[in-house]
Each structure stands twice: as structure tokens, then as C-alpha cells.
């Protein structure tokens, strides 16, 4: 497999390139100094600061969020047994968006003490809470007698998303220009929140999600045949659904909370992997994580350099980079099925 080296190359490139010029050799020296291999006198303090406090956390955050969104997408597609399922299907994204809009537009209603205590974490905290609440409502609506209907969940997810967009619309209506602008930026996503504490929170949550997802791979393969078929193959389907939803909720929730809405990765990464390596989840889940992380790091590299010293919202880039790639793969697949 060449995917691993490509991912590493993209990560190294993303570390070496940015608006702030740092020569590749310096990047190596600074990283070396960080782990005690190079004498600290040999490096420029400001370059080191840029690399360690801005670029490294950002690349790590991008890799974690990309991997999390891609795996959540793959899990949702497996759960819904549908290759066009999106990680936002269970309402996490729209719930988080509504909460974020609430904080942006009506932030003043929060008690001053809460705002001071949470500081920059008020919005992520609220967004995660909103996303989790929406997903739990969807799950609750779709569950009867301890059995969750995936089909009902799909409809409930659509309903709650519609409700959330109505709420967002209302908030947008009463928002000032500035608030509207912030809201727009939020819906286009950004990795600008990257710092070491954010990397720690997001990285930890998504690592747990990825570890849990490994155990879901084989049962999801069985589920591809149908829910009863999976049950007859010995899968505890309801338990698996609960874990899938929990993992997706955690991965998407924490990503959306800190980085806003980053579209397309969750749909495109698993789909691309499926076209290249087949639908086996034992391969699909880790490969999606790798591809999702790589894509997002690459997209962010472009986002933060192409209009430097400003930066583009990353959601624009994930669509701009993802769609052509996706279309090429679809065309290739189409060619194969029609000729074969």
C-alpha cells in the first residue's frame, strides 16, 4: 500500500509550508530540538513558536478531525446500509449548528459567570451539547421497545435537521451583520481554533472513537446483508447500533464543536476507499481514517496559504478538492461496470 507514505508526505509538507516562511531544513531542526535531538541554540525562536504553537497543532487537529469525520461517515453508511449516508444524518451537525448560532447571536443571554468560566470553550461546549441532544432525540424517537429502527431514525434525522435550520433561520433573521458573518464562517468550518488543549480534547475523543470502531468492522460487514441476516450471523444488532451511534456522535460532535461544519470529508473519504479497496469494513474504517485525515490536512494547507496572510474557510476547500476527485472515481467505476 502506498497510502501510508502519501499520508506522511502530506503531513510533512503541511508542516513545512505555511504563510510564515520556514525553510524545510529549519522545520527538521525545530522538530529535532523539540524532541531533544538538536541543540536549541541552532533554531530561531519565532520560527519555533510558529511551528510548535500554530502549525503542528493545526496539522494534528486536521488529521484527527478528518479521520473522525471520515470514520463517522463510514459507520453511518454501514449502519444505514447506504453509500450516500452522511455523518450528519442523525442530526449531530444541525443540532450543533443551532447551538452555535444561538451562542453567536444570543450569547448575551448566558450568565456572565458561565461565559467567564468557559471563555473560548463556550461555543464548542454548547455546539457539542446541541449536537448530542439532537442525536439523542433522533435515537429516542426511532426506538421502541428497545429496538431502534434505522429507517425511522433517517426520517427523524431529517425532521430534526429541518427544525434546526428553522431555528437557525430565525436566529439569522434577528442577527446583526457581524453575527451573520460569523455564522456563515462557522458553517464553512475552520481549523483556526487549533492549539494544544484543543488538540488534546479532540485527539483524545477521536482516538477513542477510532479504537471503538475497530471492533465494529466485522459486525458491520454482517449488517450489510440486512439486520435480521446480521442477527442470524450472531451479531447483537441493537448493541452494535448503540455503539455506532455513540462513536459517530462523539467523533462528529467534537469535530463540529471545535471546527464548525466541514462538509464532504465524511461522504467522500469512505466512498473513495470503497471504490479503491472494496466495501470490507475491516479495511474501510482504518483506510477512511487515513484518507480523511490526509484530505483535511491537504485542504487546510491550501486554505491557509492560498490567500495568505488571510485564510479561506476550509469547507470551501474540502468541496473544491473533494468533488473533482470523487467525480473522477465515479466515472472510473461507471466505466468498469458498463464495460464489465
Amino acid at each position: 500500500m502506498t497510502a501510508g507514505p502519501i499520508a506522511v508526505a502530506v503531513a510533512v509538507f503541511a508542516l513545512a509550508v505555511g504563510a510564515f516562511p520556514i525553510a524545510p531544513s529549519q522545520v527538521l531542526s525545530i522538530l529535532g530540538a523539540g524532541i531533544g535531538l538538536v541543540a536549541p541554540e541552532a533554531i530561531d525562536a519565532q520560527q519555533a513558536a510558529v511551528l510548535w504553537s500554530i502549525r503542528v497543532p493545526r496539522v494534528l487537529l486536521g488529521a484527527a478531525v478528518g479521520a473522525g469525520l471520515a470514520v463517522a461517515g463510514a459507520l453511518m453508511q454501514g449502519l444505514f446500509r447506504n453509500p450516500i449516508a452522511d455523518p450528519g444524518l442523525i442530526g449531530v451537525t444541525s443540532g450543533a449548528a443551532l447551538a452555535a448560532a444561538f451562542v453567536i447571536v444570543l450569547g448575551a443571554v448566558f450568565p456572565g459567570k458561565l461565559v467567564r468560566e468557559l471563555g473560548n470553550y463556550l461555543l464548542p461546549f454548547a455546539a457539542f451539547f446541541g449536537g448530542a441532544l439532537a442525536a439523542l432525540i433522533v435515537k429516542h424517537v426511532a426506538t421502541r421497545d428497545g429496538v431502534t429502527s434505522v429507517f425511522t431514525m433517517l426520517l427523524a434525522g431529517i425532521a430534526i435537521s429541518a427544525l434546526a435550520s428553522a431555528g437557525i433561520g430565525l436566529l439569522a433573521y434577528i442577527a446583526t451583520d457581524t453575527q451573520l458573518r460569523l455564522l456563515t464562517f462557522w458553517t464553512l468550518g475552520s481549523l483556526g481554533s487549533a492549539n494544544w488543549s484543543v488538540v488534546a480534547i479532540v485527539g483524545f475523543t477521536i482516538s477513542i472513537a477510532l479504537i471503538l470502531s475497530v471492533r465494529l468492522a466485522a459486525p458491520l460487514n454482517a449488517l450489510a446483508l440486512g439486520e435480521f441476516e446480521a442477527k442470524h450471523l450472531g451479531v447483537d444488532v441493537q448493541r452494535m447500533k448503540n455503539i455506532v451511534l455513540l462513536v459517530a456522535l462523539a467523533a462528529v460532535g467534537v469535530s463540529v464543536a471545535f471546527c464548525g461544519m466541514i462538509g464532504f470529508i465524511g461522504l467522500v473519504a469512505p466512498h473513495c476507499v470503497r471504490l479503491l479497496c472494496g466495501p470490507d469494513h475491516r479495511m474501510l474504517l482504518p483506510a477512511s481514517a487515513l484518507l480523511g485525515g490526509t484530505l483535511l490536512v491537504a485542504a487546510d494547507l491550501v486554505a491557509r496559504t492560498v490567500v495568505a496572510p488571510a485564510e479561506l474557510p476550509i469547507g470551501i476547500l474540502t468541496a473544491l478538492l473533494g468533488v473533482p476527485f470523487f467525480v473522477v472515481l465515479l466515472r472510473r467505476q461507471h466505466g468498469q461496470t458498463t464495460s464489465g
Binding site: 505555511g18 504563510a19 510564515f20 516562511p21 519565532q46 510558529v50 500554530i54 502549525r55 471563555g119 473560548n120 457581524t178 458573518r181 460569523l182 464562517f185 475552520s190 483556526g192 481554533s193 487549533a194 492549539n195 484543543v198 491557509r304 495568505a308 496572510p309 488571510a310 485564510e311 474557510p313
Partner: peptide, 28 residues
């Protein structure tokens, strides 16, 4: 946009001083 500054982008200009209003951001 004042509320969506890029830390590295601004740093790349090698500024010695940034003049900002309380609206500048993001905090990070």
C-alpha cells in the same frame, strides 16, 4: 476579516505591533 484572523498569516508579515479593536478574533 477582523474576526477570522489567521495567526500564521499575520505572523508571516513579521509584525512588531498589531492594532486591534475588541472585535478582532478569533481568540485563539
Amino acid at each position: 476579516y477582523a474576526r477570522q484572523l489567521s495567526a500564521e498569516g499575520v505572523l508571516a508579515l513579521r509584525p512588531t505591533l498589531i492594532l486591534a479593536t475588541s472585535e478582532a478574533g478569533p481568540p485563539n
